[in-house]
Design a protein around this nucleic acid. Sequence first.
DNA 1: AACTCGGGGGG
DNA 2: CCCCCAGAGTT
Length: 351
Amino acid sequence: MKKFSEKIIYWYQENKRDLPWRNTKDAYLIWLSEIILQQTRVEQGMAYYLKFAKEFPTVKHLAAADDEKVMKLWQGLGYYSRARNLHAAAKVISEKHKGKFPNEHSDILLLKGVGEYTAAAIASFAFNKVHAVVDGNVYRVLSRVFGIETPIDSTEGKKEFYKLANELIDKKNPALHNQAIMEFGAIQCKPVSPDCSVCPLNTMCFAYAKKRITELPIKAKKTKVRCRYFNYIVLHHKTLTALNKRGEGDIWNSLYDFPLIETNKELGEDQFLKSKDWKNFIDGAQYTVKSIPVSYKHILSHQKIYARFWEIECAKPFDKLLPETAVVIKTKELHQYAVPRLIDIYLESRK
DNA sequence: AACTCGGGGGG
DNA sequence: CCCCCAGAGTT
């Protein structure tokens, strides 16, 4: 009987997708692709990879780029700390490593934004080192084939799956093996309704034999969702608009939105208009509220945001009247700023 | 060990 | 509505 590794590698060679980051040995490009693909589907990350690779063909190009430009290119992809860490690490590689990407697993692991998975991916794909990758796909394949019921989001589970993955890896073809098992998980051993009848591993699969495909892998925690109510104050004065740069400790760090009043619960529209808080933004200046606010429900994996955009025409400039984090910009230059998807959708609707 | 960090797609 | 996706950093 053929071994696990041989079977998935054979399957991979017959079924693999043609993906751009598989056609290079450039550690920088492989790193770039791995950061973009963290918790992100290949189809969603593809356009961003092509954009970044074209705009920043080498790590030095990326290191030399402006922060705001990097964030703008990342706009819409989510998990924005990835972009900040990517940029910070590019500067380290460019300066401390003289532009040469580290080729040891332990050194790669020191880079900001690079954890166990990504270090193994880069070390194997770029330098053909024997380090097994364990991503969501690998957890699923291993738990099903070998019947592992340890929760994948536990410390114990992580150790157990890494141990098994490193026992199974083809030490002569670590890069090929790692690509194969992930692609196998993504395409054949899918999360929902995989076609096990055509699976090359169905004769050795625990979950298939026990009819427990839908139960594996096991995840212990469930993310709870928090509801938030955002009242955005979209201030205009002639050709000017006020933006707000978001900071640490909340979503969308280092992106821009508008000056904001957040409340614990839904307020009526008249109730909000009467409230004093937002008028601090304009310090009692004359203003005109343009019609009723535009409303959106923005769903994230861990937050539900009920947003309203109050468009206010202000009679005088608002330079010094805003929060510390605010910036006054020309409305026509708004498109240069990196904004959350929610703000982007609002702006698109205003065109 | 638990929490937080986005956005999109599929059943 | 739910779950998952080429996970990592912080507390």
